[in-house]
Design a protein around this nucleic acid. Structure first.
Length: 860
RNA sequence: GGGUGGUUAGCUCAGUGGUAGAGCGUCUCGUUUACACCGAGAAUGUCGGGGGUUCGAAACCCUCACCGCCCA
């Protein structure tokens, strides 16, 4: 073996990770071949926003995708994992505007063209940082196919699909109440609005005079000047006689009708509500039904405008106070409740309170697309994992409102609609040019309109590309449940529309969010944010990946703490040291595995354990059960392999006659590294190449569990050896015998166990020989005698035995209760009854043995 | 208000009908031919409360309480 294959005596991830990643890229392992005859496996990476840095949620998302990609690659699939980034319209524009603001400028100072140029510049820097962080994590993406939602190809695709949807009647322009952010000065879709409980006020105001008056209750008194009616429930006896009459609207002295609408809840407030058609979505609906006029009283900045009153020019919140004060002065305020806690919408990007605003915008008619998206899942064409999350999906797609897609921003795909001098409106396709003198719609499209195309445009659509043919639909979408509605639903809708009814993925695999060690949401204000880069620096990428994958139970959030990552690093170190030890002892992958019948039981046992572990882990990974897969690997590697197999084999290795075990150990490590590689790619690559002398695990074959290795007899034997060893260790511990002290002793055991006496003796520091026994312990039917040269700690030994006796007695009792229960005997299945009978027998003989041992102890 | 997930060891979580588990933490001991980022041993639970189904319930059903998330 050449010196390059030797392992350093200590494991330092920082030294191996970067060079290995470079090696993989150089070798082109991650570059997919659309012409390949292998079956395809494809994933599109949920594109991170260019605004950000890689956060721990990305690290989780990408780790899981990398696990799948690497496993599938090893299983012989042609794997394409396509990376890229999202231009994140409003978020990015906000970031760059903030930078400008620091220099005292606004985007208007630069003008549209200059500003967009500036954003592109910024994108280059920020995007580069994210890519570097992804490489750090070890992602096996195909960098040659990297995309950006605003690159040339995707821009063309956006225009193309806009036109197609428009032609199909799925895109229309209308004046509607939309969510408006008075700070960002743009329309927002429903999902860009976050509802929070705010402390507002609830004011009851008397409209009209004398007999002809009615008290309305509202949280937004400042909008009353825009009222077009007062609405009551049609069956409300308090107001029935007033329906159809008019009342005086104070402040503006306008007469407005009292209308009846089922939407009004008679139990809410006074049962009478103001109808402000231009400033509230519910009122808008009612107004449409009853022909109530739309009175706009606020401008785009949320400043009162056009009321013709003293309030014009006031900010909406100032106006609220002023209006109430004025109404009080007029004696019109009947009651006030303050604070009044109620849900209020906020801009998800800047937290400004949303202002519902009447405005002309572009919309997607979602109904037919949403139905197709829902049907794809209902018909089983697309599977949601874990399936418990499917109801949430249906809840959303079945009740979706039309989607407002125009944004009054500069950063994004400009809406491909042009307006002629005589009011003509035309969508201009990517291969068309607008007639001279026409002007383009100044607005851009919602970011999700372009990222909704991520699963097909990235493959070259609308061209009939080879990638599209080979890799669409993608195999699985891996993403957090938090963007199920934002993104996943939109991809389902747009892909299914564009790709003739073929949905974009076969499976949607949803994971949860990463939280802090107490399960709290990470946030800057809490100061509990975990930076993946910091922890990769400290513990290595493998440790972070393993921790994240190990915590990834399907669809649930996971807590994460530095200690957990440290634990995974310890695990990596354990693997490193175990491999060093194995190689020092001649572990090898040369030649065939010896015939099973030539192996000792310990070798057979580890092969049996591995065969089952390999099968389980493969199945678990295929089923997206990352946490359980990692747990299974962890316990195989640490417990079975390191704590038992290596320990039990030390004597064999020391004996010099270990050729079979060397080959078995080499085989198990070889296979283990393959199966662990998807989760911990760096360390496994390093160890495996050192062990095997081969080129790379990335392109190695995924092992197939060998069921002929399953050996229940060997497992039974080793479990007995474990029992005996544990018992001796316990005895030694209780007797306070130093580990360094070798104790003379012997095993009184049947031949098949006696065969492993020296292996056990090695582990428990016993010197085998003929002795004069002065103490003994017993387990698995084997008596172990020791020569303690007369003196044992009788008190400690009595305690130990009494404890065993108590345990055995309790177990015996529970077994007896069951066996004496007629119902149990009559109805429990045979195998359970047998098991309980055996337990009774064992506990009975244990009790006899322990009792005898206690009696045999000298009096204290 | 509607939906939905949860409540298991000090903490974070597995565990879909047959003697309660893991990681971390805690305690005791220990440098023995990989590893102190280690080894050995140990302690710790009326599985949220109450009711029901069952021979048998952490698990299934009902109900209550509390926590969380999504939507309005």
């Amino acid at each position: 073996m050449s010196s390059s294959h030797e392992l350093a005596s200590t494991f330092s991830p920082a030294e191996i990770e970067a060079p290995l990643y470079e090696k993989w890229i150089k070798a082109g392992y991650f570059t997919a071949d659309a012409q390949s005859s292998k079956p395809a496996f494809s994933i599109v990476l949920p594109p991170p926003n260019v605004t950000g840095v890689l956060h721990i949620g990305h690290a989780l998302d990408q780790t899981l995708q990398d696990c799948l990609s690497r496993m599938k690659r090893m299983q012989g699939f042609e794997v394409l994992w396509l990376p890229g980034m999202d231009h994140a319209g409003i978020a990015t524009q906000n970031v760059v505007e903030k930078q400008l603001a620091a220099g005292g400028k606004s985007r208007h100072d630069l003008g549209r063209e200059e500003f967009v140029k500036k954003v592109w510049q910024w994108k280059e820097e920020s995007g580069g940082a994210i890519l570097g962080q992804m490489k750090r994590l070890g992602v096996s993406v195909d960098w040659t196919r990297e995309r950006f939602t605003m690159d040339e190809g995707m821009s063309k695709a956006v225009v193309t699909i806009f036109k197609r949807m428009h032609d199909a009647g799925l895109i229309y322009r209308a004046e509607r109440i939309i969510n408006w952010c008075p700070r960002c000065l743009t329309a927002l879709s429903d999902i860009e609005v976050e509802h929070q409980d705010d402390a507002g006020e609830f004011v009851s105001v008397r409209y009209g005079e004398g007999e002809q008056s009615i008290v309305v209750a509202t949280t937004r008194p400042e909008t009353m000047m825009g009222d077009g009616a007062v609405a009551v429930h049609p069956d409300d006896p308090r107001y029935k006689h007033m329906i159809g009459t008019e009342v005086l609207l104070p402040l503006v002295n306008r007469m407005i009708p009292i209308i009846a609408d089922e939407l009004v809840d008679p139990d809410f407030g006074t049962g009478a509500v103001k109808v402000t058609a231009a400033h509230d979505p519910n009122d808008f609906e009612m107004a449409m039904r009853h022909n109530v006029p739309f009175v706009v009283i606020m401008n785009e900045h949320g400043v009162m405008d056009g009321t013709g009153t003293e309030f014009d020019g006031m900010d909406r919140f100032d106006a609220r106070k002023a209006v109430v004060a004025k109404l009080k002065e007029m004696g019109r305020v009947v009651s006030e409740k303050r604070p009044y806690i109620h849900a209020v919408g906020h801009c998800s990007r800047c937290e400004t309170t949303i202002e519902p605003r009447l405005s002309k915008q572009w919309f997607v008619k979602v109904e037919p697309m949403a139905k197709a998206a829902a049907d794809a899942v209902r018909n089983g064409l697309v599977k949601i994992e874990p399936e418990e999350l499917a109801p949430r999906y249906f809840d959303w797609v079945d009740n979706m409102h039309d989607w407002c897609i125009s944004r009054q921003l500069w950063w994004g795909h400009r809406i491909p609609v042009w307006y002629g001098p005589n009011g003509e409106v035309k969508v201009i396709g990517s291969d068309e040019t607008a007639p001279a003198g026409w002007t383009q719609d100044p607005d851009v499209l919602d970011t999700w309109f372009s990222s909704g195309q991520w699963a097909f445009s990235t493959f070259g659509w609308p061209e009939k590309s080879a990638d599209l043919a080979k890799f669409y639909p993608t195999s699985v979408l891996v993403t957090g449940y938090d963007i199920l509605f934002f993104w996943v639903v939109r991809m389902m809708m747009m892909s299914t529309f564009a790709m003739d009814g073929v949905p974009p993925f076969k499976t949607i695999m949803l994971h949860g969010l990463v939280r802090d060690q107490f399960g709290k949401k990470m946030s800057k204000s809490r100061g509990n944010v975990i930076d993946p880069i910091e922890f990769m620096d400290k513990y290595g990428a493998d440790a972070l990946r393993f921790t994240l994958a190990r915590g990834a139970n399907p669809g649930t959030d996971q807590a994460l703490a530095e200690d957990w990552i440290g634990g995974s690093r310890n695990f990596a170190t354990k693997l490193w040291n175990a491999t060093r030890f194995a190689m020092m002892n001649g572990a090898t992958v040369e030649g065939d595995l010896p015939p099973l019948e030539n192996l000792n039981e310990i070798d057979k046992w580890i092969l049996s354990r591995w065969s089952q572990t390999c099968l389980q882990v493969t199945e678990l990974l295929e089923n997206y059960e990352f946490a359980r897969a990692c747990e299974t690997l962890y316990h195989f590697a640490w417990d079975d392999l390191c704590d038992w197999y290596l320990e039990l084999s030390k004597e064999t290795f020391a004996s010099g006659d270990a050729a079979h075990s060397q080959r078995v150990l080499g085989y198990v490590l070889d296979q283990l590294f393959r199966v662990m590689h998807p989760v911990m790619p760096f360390i496994t690559e390093q160890l495996w190449t050192a062990l095997t002398g081969q080129e790379s695990l990335v392109t190695a074959q995924w092992p197939k569990a060998d069921s002929s290795h399953v050996d229940k007899k060997a497992e039974e034997l080793v479990s007995q050896l474990q029992e005996i060893i544990t018992e001796v260790r316990r005895f030694r511990n209780d007797q306070g015998l130093k580990t360094s002290l070798k104790i003379p002793g012997r095993f009184i055991a049947p031949a098949h166990i006696a065969k492993y006496a020296s292996a056990m003796a090695f582990v428990v520091r016993m010197e085998l020989g003929d002795i004069t026994a002065s103490a003994k312990c017993e387990a698995a039917g084997v008596v172990v005698e020791f020569d303690l040269t007369g003196s044992i700690d009788v008190v400690a030994e009595r305690q130990r035995l009494e404890k065993d006796l108590a345990t055995a007695s309790k177990d015996k009792q529970t077994a007896e209760v069951k066996l004496n229960n007629q119902g149990f005997m009559a109805k429990a299945p045979e195998n359970v009854v047998v098991e309980i009978r055996e337990r009774l027998e064992k506990t009975t003989s244990d009790i006899a043995r322990i009792t005898a041992a206690l009696a045999g102890l000298p009096k204290a």
